[in-house]
């Protein structure tokens, strides 16, 4: 229990925005930048913006979730942290589960807050914003889980940042379809499916990630 608390504390110190050299703030600024640029690109047409703005927020959220992937696990593997944890009987699965929690905490809630100014920038109304926020709450754990799995799979590869970004995108398509799809139908069905996908991904992440990190040791 002691060790788990120490791990979570270290992970949060690494990943929460503003705790380390400000690098972790970048995904949020990136997200807001997407929302800000979109009206410039599409033109000041309120109906068009309001109809498509929710989807843009989703795409921005997906891209923002990709940004921190390269330093999510690779540094700890290279510096021998995972070896030392394994020797102490702390399994890779436990470390990955804690890392997933810390990763989500470092961007999920902040993204939901940043969606408020972003919604003003793309001009969507209160009801749509409500659906977007609920969708983000249901979908960001899944995005975090995909990110952790991909980061674990690409852990042994040099220059893995661009590759992991590319690998995340197809896996994130279901979350995007149901999460952003809930906007047009306005129904709870899409949100429920998004949450179900997230739950499944969160459940398999520790095992997939742990196995990937162990496999990287053998190479």
């Amino acid at each position: 229990m002691n060790a788990l608390a120490a791990l979570l504390k270290r992970d949060l110190a690494h990943f929460l925005p503003g705790t380390r050299s400000g690098g972790t703030l970048l995904p949020l600024l990136f997200f807001l930048a997407v929302a800000m640029l979109y009206p410039f690109a599409i033109g000041p047409n309120p109906t068009l913006l309001a109809a498509t703005g929710g989807g843009v927020i989703w795409v921005g959220a997906l891209l923002a979730a990709i940004l921190p992937l390269d330093r999510l696990l690779a540094a700890d593997v290279q510096q021998g942290f995972f070896d030392q944890w394994a020797l102490r009987g702390i399994s890779e699965e436990v470390v990955v589960a804690i890392r997933l929690l810390a990763h989500w905490l470092s961007f999920g809630p902040f993204l939901m807050v940043a969606a408020l100014p972003a919604s003003a920038l793309v001009g969507i109304d209160g009801e749509t914003l409500h659906t977007v926020e609920l969708g983000l709450l249901a979908g960001t754990p899944g995005l975090a889980a995909i990110g952790v799995i991909i980061a674990a799979i690409t852990v042994g590869l040099r220059g893995n940042a661009a590759l992991s970004g590319l690998l995340v995108i197809p896996l994130a398509v279901p979350i995007l379809i149901f999460g952003a799809g809930a906007l047009s139908t306005g129904g709870e069905g899409g949100l429920a499916l998004t949450a179900a996908i997230s739950l499944l991904l969160v459940a398999i992440t520790p095992f997939a990630g742990g196995a990937a990190i162990r496999a990287a040791r053998e190479s």
Partner: peptide
């Protein structure tokens, strides 16, 4: 339990 000392210090 085994302790390992190699070229990776495992320090932040």
């Amino acid at each position: 339990m085994a302790a390992l000392l190699d070229e990776k210090p495992a320090l932040d």
